[in-house]
């Protein structure tokens, strides 16, 4: 793991409202390069909204997002994807009509640029590019152990595997920061262990910075280097798993609530 003290991403005083609903209220925290950062909190705390702010899908009314030491101007999601932010979704958002390998290949979309002419001929530069990116995707597929379902349409896969394909697709973007929205929701213990192992491997082998939302506290305590706790859109605590776990406000607001 790389040195964990340089800030790669920082959100400052984020305020996000939907009409009368205040989803995020004056939240600030940072993410170090190479760390696994967990975001936890009860349902409706604003966790997913926070990820949506980070990858540009939601535009907060107030606040700043700093990335790589620069204040990020207002951008469209597809532009933000270019800067190296990838994510998975709380409700799986795979391309249902495509196979596993095709889904993973979509992660390379931004790195491919051969024009319509070559695409039509599927020859020369276009096919070279396709082969080169295909190779990387096959590596990721090997890495996540989803070889056996390469050619399967993702719509017919069980839930746990779909989550894994989604991770593969995000990894195919070679992201600097990977945002995972409840990657283990709805999984059994064994699937959760597999997924935890993959997350750690991604972090260690590729050096990818990871921000993840997770409800399972045992998992969070195992995986995360640092934890942000949100509650009703407000920042409740921020620190190492041990610090957060012993924080009285967190115990009252969150750990006391059964999940």
């Amino acid at each position: 793991m790389s040195e964990k003290n340089s800030v790669i991403m920082e959100v400052k005083n984020i305020n996000l409202r939907f009409g009368g609903v205040i989803a995020i209220q004056n939240v600030s925290f940072n993410i170090f390069e190479g760390e696994i950062r967990a975001i936890i909190g009860p349902n409706g705390a604003g966790k997913s909204s926070m990820l949506n702010v980070i990858n540009g899908f939601y535009h907060p009314q107030e606040g700043e997002v700093w990335f790589n030491g620069e204040k990020r101007p207002s951008m469209e999601p597809y532009q933000i994807a270019k800067t190296g932010i990838a994510r998975t979704f709380q409700n799986i958002a795979l391309f249902k009509g495509m196979t596993t390998i095709e889904n993973v290949m979509t992660g390379r979309q931004l790195k491919m640029n051969k024009n319509f002419f070559w695409q039509m001929l599927r020859y020369g530069p276009a096919i070279d590019e396709e082969v080169q990116h295909r190779r990387r995707c096959e590596e990721i597929i090997d890495f996540l152990e989803i070889n056996h379902i390469r050619k399967t349409p993702v719509g017919s896969l069980p839930y746990g595997l779909q989550k894994r394909v989604e991770l593969a697709r995000a990894l195919a973007m070679d992201p600097k920061i990977l945002l995972l929205d409840e990657p283990m929701a709805g999984m059994n213990v064994e699937e959760k262990q597999d997924m935890s192992r993959f997350i750690i491997d991604v972090n260690e082998e590729f050096g990818t910075t990871i921000a993840l939302i997770e409800h399972d506290m045992a998992v969070v305590m195992d995986l995360a280097d640092r934890v942000v706790v949100l509650d009703y859109g407000k920042l409740l605590a921020d620190g190492t798993p041990a610090e957060v776990q012993s924080n009285q406000a967190v115990i009252d607001a969150y750990l006391g609530v059964p999940h």
Binding site: K96, T106, G107, Q109, M173
Partner: peptide, 23 residues
């Protein structure tokens, strides 16, 4: 190829397509 995939991405899940970088 790339362009065909961008169409299918928009067809299947336009929000995810956009977040992956399809305009």
């Amino acid at each position: 190829g790339r362009i065909g995939r961008s169409w299918m991405m928009i067809r299947d899940m336009d929000i995810a397509a956009e977040l992956i970088g399809v305009r």
